[in-house]
């Protein structure tokens, strides 16, 4: 029971990471297309400026919880994903630095350099997360001793790449919606045109990914065995449809929230589909790691559950407060004249 609760919490932490850092990554990947001059670029940076750091902590929390609640999964998963994971970490390092360093030197070449870094690292991070999760849904070659038999190319199969593209487009939509919420006038109109381009793209990628999922994974088995779980993909569809409905009603923030629902449901769709597996072995089903054979002791799971039940709501409350505090619209003029902005 404790293992199942932790499995769901584990999925939830990843989902929260995706909805929060997802819009940072997506908007960062849109930077060269979304902004046409220095003032607009500054707006893009500052639209996510007060949030990216707090958002990234959800990744640390998700990693930490994997370590604490499922140490064996943490050990085998992260050593198997050695190369993609380190690439992701380097991308996130340089992404963070691009926020902090860009505006510290006025030279245009310095700024262009960090703009390029910002774009490339956000793009790479979004794609890598998709590639990694698609491969987790599908299974990777690990043996009974937790040794990985493959290399980076093992992950870059058709299904993995489809996952990468899907995540990139989904996050880009998420970022464009956020930009729409944080800007006004010309910038907002431009971000709306991105949204209307990215929404159908997301739908197409979703359908293509689902189609491939039926071929490459066993995810649907859980849904056939337990049809009640089909509520998850229904919520996903409702979320994505809700984005469009809210946009037509000019309720931008609610459109973004609907997209959050969509991303959470997509994450749960995949993760609940592999339950109770956490790391499927494509070599030997018996070598797969599950929530049950990789969990921590009951005492640790209980204590950590207490910590999570107390702390996560508190964190959500103060992060919500911080989001509200910085929910105002940004204009190029205001950002450029504020000595505290990025």
């Amino acid at each position: 029971m404790l293992e199942t609760i932790w499995f769901i919490l584990w999925a939830l932490l990843w989902a929260v990471y995706f909805i929060l850092d997802g819009f940072d990554l997506g908007l960062g990947a849109l930077l060269p297309f979304a902004a046409r001059d220095e003032g607009e670029r500054r707006v893009i940076y500052n639209a996510t400026g007060p949030f990216w750091d707090g958002n990234e902590v959800w990744l640390i929390a998700a990693g930490g919880v994997t370590f604490a609640a499922f140490p064996k999964t943490y050990a085998v998963m992260f050593s198997a994903l050695y190369v993609p994971l380190l690439l992701l970490l380097f991308a996130l390092i340089l992404r963070a630095v691009s926020y902090e360093f860009r505006n510290k030197v006025a030279h245009p070449a310095w700024r262009s350099l960090w703009d390029l870094v910002h774009f490339a690292t956000n793009l790479v991070a979004a794609v890598l997360l998709g590639v990694a999760f698609a491969n987790l849904f599908r299974g990777i070659p690990i043996d009974a001793n937790g040794v990985f038999h493959g290399n980076l190319l093992t992950f870059l199969n058709l299904y993995g790449l489809a996952g990468g593209l899907f995540f990139l487009v989904m996050f880009a939509l998420h970022g464009a919606l956020w930009m729409c919420f944080k800007t006004e006038g010309e910038l907002q109109e431009r971000s709306l045109s991105f949204v209307y381009l990215l929404w159908p793209l997301t739908l197409i990628c979703l359908l293509a990914f689902l189609f491939l999922t039926a071929f490459y994974t066993d995810i649907f088995k859980n849904y056939i065995a337990m049809p009640a779980l089909l509520i998850i993909p229904l919520v996903a569809v409702a979320g994505l449809a809700g984005v469009l409905v809210m946009l037509l009603r000019k309720k931008i923030l609610l459109a973004w929230v609907c997209n959050c629902v969509f991303i959470i449901a997509v994450t749960f769709f995949g993760v609940m589909g592999i339950f109770p597996n956490m790391l499927i072995s494509s070599m030997d089903p018996a070598a797969s790691l599950t929530a049950f054979n990789s969990a921590s002791s009951e005492l640790t799971l209980t204590i950590m559950l207490g910590v999570a039940l107390v702390m996560v709501p508190i964190v959500l409350i103060y992060q919500f407060w911080a989001y509200r505090l910085f929910s105002h619209k940004l204009t190029p003029n205001e950002v450029v004249n504020d000595s505290h902005s990025y």
Binding site: A61, G64, A68, P71, Y74, A75, S296, V312
Partner: peptide, 16 residues
């Protein structure tokens, strides 16, 4: 794998 039961929870608590 060997000490995650204890060591991992301390890191997770640090984050939260």
């Amino acid at each position: 794998e060997y000490v995650g039961d204890i060591f991992g929870s301390l890191l997770a608590i640090e984050a939260t």
